[in-house]
Write a protein that binds this DNA or RNA. Structure first.
Lengths: 224, 224
DNA sequence: AAACATAGTGTTAAAGATACACAATGTCAA
DNA sequence: TTGACATTGTGTATCTTTAACACTATGTTT
């Protein structure tokens, strides 16, 4: 194929990359894909790829995520734009990065054409990564941790319905410490973000729990 | 000049734009430049311009700011990356935006080659702007307001030395409400970010004030 | 029907935030 | 030189928010 796209001045390429988090096996996990082609062939990397010339940035991030991992319909937020001059050996590449949160009941993956494989990794077991992707992950994790304190972002890890105990477990995994049950429930209910779904969840030989759901499933609010 | 930079796939152009804030005349003000060329000739816009192919993003933002307004050495932070497909009539342009804070004693401007003119505008008197720059300003202002609550970013508006009353006035302008003097001083001193400079400032017919300075002038800390 | 296991609930103490008023000190003018 | 002036600098009491803490309720299983 000829180099038929010409400009008066040199242009960088633009990509999007996405750090997708979920909670699985009682751990915070991150989604990585194994690179099918050069450079960094066979190494693990964040899902992502080149921006189409008429495509919105966020649309690009969602498309690449879907193509490479089969995941769609997630909560997505722009993280940071990386553009160090030599971050890619092929040419100058600006990467607009996003982070995404997936509920734990929707993490079925497909190994798709662009990626030889896709897999969830615990955050303390990330393999060596292509490009500057480790830096992206570190930043994404820091941002997620910060947002827990002052937004309702953690709800984005929850399936459509859930119990307060399940929600508490998610928070405990995210902040890595035990919480008091009564205080937790008080604080969560005071947010007025969830409502009773009307059913009970019965699991095991004990009292069933009230099931809740988000009032605004798409929305992440700033609190306090 | 020929179109001598060719690629296999179409590439967007990349620019940086900067929203520079300062406090002047007891108001929060924003720096705008009048566009010298097309498109949007003579309209007001944020200072900014095209990324050189081997230039770091932040370096580009600082360079354009210096070239167009003469301002340098400011606190600069990445804000967001805008990339809607038709935000520029010439070609596809991705803009990596920053916001910057300038101390009120360093706001001498120069009208430079790239910009016919540069001027400070009160936030409620922003003229119609080129491109999607109004959106950028709105976002930058929101981010600044949010950061006041949980960081020491407001110190970046202060000159090298200042009194506690001067600092309080800056905070009052930024959050647009009066603060209690004793509580304000308690809270600020508890941050352990400033120290006595050892001199007194004498202005007017009244008791002189202790002069303070930042312990780490470059640093912005997250608090609480 | 008794043992089990998790759900669900209130109160007290500690810490942090807010409200509030007057003495101290240098300048200026009479 | 003295008194009026204008802003600096300081402490305490109250309210609000957060943190600590233990037992009863309810369905399941044996």
């Amino acid at each position: 194929m000829a180099n038929q796209h010409c400009y008066q001045y040199p242009h960088p390429a633009v990509t999007t990359d996405v750090a997708v988090f979920t909670i699985r096996d009682q751990q915070l996990k991150l989604l990585l894909v194994q690179r099918a082609g050069e450079p960094y062939q066979n190494m693990w990397a964040l899902p992502g790829g080149f921006l189409n010339i008429d495509e919105d940035l966020e649309v690009c991030a969602k498309r690449e995520l879907e193509e490479e991992t089969g995941i769609s319909g997630v909560y997505l937020e722009q993280l940071y734009t990386f553009g160090a001059p030599n971050r890619d050996p092929r040419e100058r590449i600006i990467s607009v990065t996003y982070y995404a949160l997936v509920p734990s009941d929707r993490l079925q993956l497909k190994a798709a054409s662009d990626a030889a494989d896709a897999q969830w990794f615990a955050l303390d077991q990330i393999p060596p990564l292509a490009f500057d992707h480790q830096k992206i992950i570190t930043l994404a994790h820091r941002r997620l941790a910060a947002k827990l304190d002052y937004s309702t972002i953690a709800f984005q890890f929850m399936p459509e319905t859930f119990t307060l105990s399940e929600l508490q477990t998610v928070y405990e995994i995210l902040i890595n410490e035990q919480l008091d049950k009564r205080n937790f429930r008080k604080k969560i209910l005071a947010l007025k973000q969830i409502e009773e779904a009307g059913e009970l969840r019965r699991t095991g030989n004990h009292r069933p729990a009230q099931v809740y759901q988000l009032k605004n499933p798409e929305r992440v609010d700033i609190i306090k």
